[in-house]
Design a protein around this nucleic acid. Sequence first.
DNA 1: CCTTTACTTTAGTTGTAACTAAATTAGCTT
DNA 2: AAGCTAATTTAGTTACAACTAAAGTAAAGG
Lengths: 114, 114
Amino acid sequence: MLLNALASPRRREILRLIWDEERSAGDIRRAMPDVTFGAVSLQLKTLAQAGLVETRRDRQFRYYRARRAALGPMAQHLEAMWADALWKLKLAAELEESRRGPRPERRRRGKRKD
Amino acid sequence: MLLNALASPRRREILRLIWDEERSAGDIRRAMPDVTFGAVSLQLKTLAQAGLVETRRDRQFRYYRARRAALGPMAQHLEAMWADALWKLKLAAELEESRRGPRPERRRRGKRKD
DNA sequence: CCTTTACTTTAGTTGTAACTAAATTAGCTT
DNA sequence: AAGCTAATTTAGTTACAACTAAAGTAAAGG
């Protein structure tokens, strides 16, 4: 659901990254080092289910881009928010608030099935 | 926060009730018998904190009314949702889904402080 | 084949939003 | 004053969204 998808500051942060140009999932993750790749992937899935992003696959990469048309009147609202310097601080505060365990992801080193 | 306040189907249901005319808290509660008075009051508080409702006090009653202006472009979006018959079914489904224990409120019968 | 890279999915944890029951506050009536 | 009624607030419960770690999938390159 549109309103539900936009209620999360994390998802709005992602949406903003892919507002003007598509980016790969890894690219998006690199822009938000406080969460794991899995977390970003799940949020992208939520956005996709809400119809707010479009996906393109190329080789081993998946590219995401915001579907502005699907946002209707909210597109303007979001852009206004992002343009407002005060809002930038609010977003930072919101993210800080919802960041409870920012430990780094461990490196995988081959399979360990037992 | 606007988007956050609108993300809850329960709050949108309340907002809709007080869209065209003010209603007392008890009146609102009577329109949603599946939750307690306390639950409605807390949601009204959330809406008030987001600046989405205005309150008026008269004798022992508190009247609430939607502040459409505060909703900006979302006002239209909400009205469009409510006008759409399909959306009515979706709202019903959402509420049904989030209704986990619709037991009636017990009658108070004097204080028991022990 | 095996390993690495890119990403998704699953299983399990945790913080918080939405709720209930009870206590509380406040106004009205007798 | 006591006893209503209207509504809020508090304390505690529960469901769920957001996360992590690990496993799984898939493509590229040795």
